[in-house]
C-alpha cells in the first residue's frame, strides 16, 4: 500500500500539458510520450507535489460522486504504473 500522506509529484524532466493540435493532454518525459485519457487526466491534473494522495482521492471522490474506495484504487494503480515508468515520484 502507498502511504496516503505522500505527495505525488512529477519527476524532474517530466511535463504534463494540454496540446492544442491534438486537443489532448500529454505527459512528456525524455524519449517518452504518454497520452493519458479520462480519469487519468483528472488524476494527473492534481499531481503537484503539494496535495497528498489522500487529498487527491477525496477531491476526485467528491467531484465525480464516486465511491472513495474505487477512486483510491484507480489512483494508486495509475500512479504506481507511472512511477515504474519513471514519470512520477510517490
Amino acid at each position: 500500500m502507498t502511504d496516503e500522506a505522500v505527495r505525488p509529484r512529477f519527476r524532474r524532466g517530466v511535463k504534463f500539458r494540454f496540446d492544442e493540435t491534438r486537443q489532448a493532454w500529454v505527459l512528456l518525459a525524455p524519449e517518452k510520450l504518454f497520452t493519458p485519457q479520462g480519469t487519468a487526466v483528472e488524476i494527473l491534473k492534481r499531481v503537484d507535489g503539494e496535495r497528498t494522495l489522500d487529498e487527491i482521492v477525496d477531491d476526485l471522490a467528491s467531484v465525480f460522486q464516486a465511491p472513495r474506495d474505487l477512486i483510491a484504487r484507480d489512483v494508486e494503480v495509475m500512479l504506481r504504473d507511472l512511477e515504474a515508468k519513471g514519470a512520477v515520484w510517490l
Partner: peptide
C-alpha cells in the same frame, strides 16, 4: 522551423 514545428504538433 521551431515555430512551424510547434504549430504542426511536434512535442519533443
Amino acid at each position: 522551423v521551431i515555430e512551424e514545428a510547434a504549430a504542426l504538433g511536434v512535442l519533443h
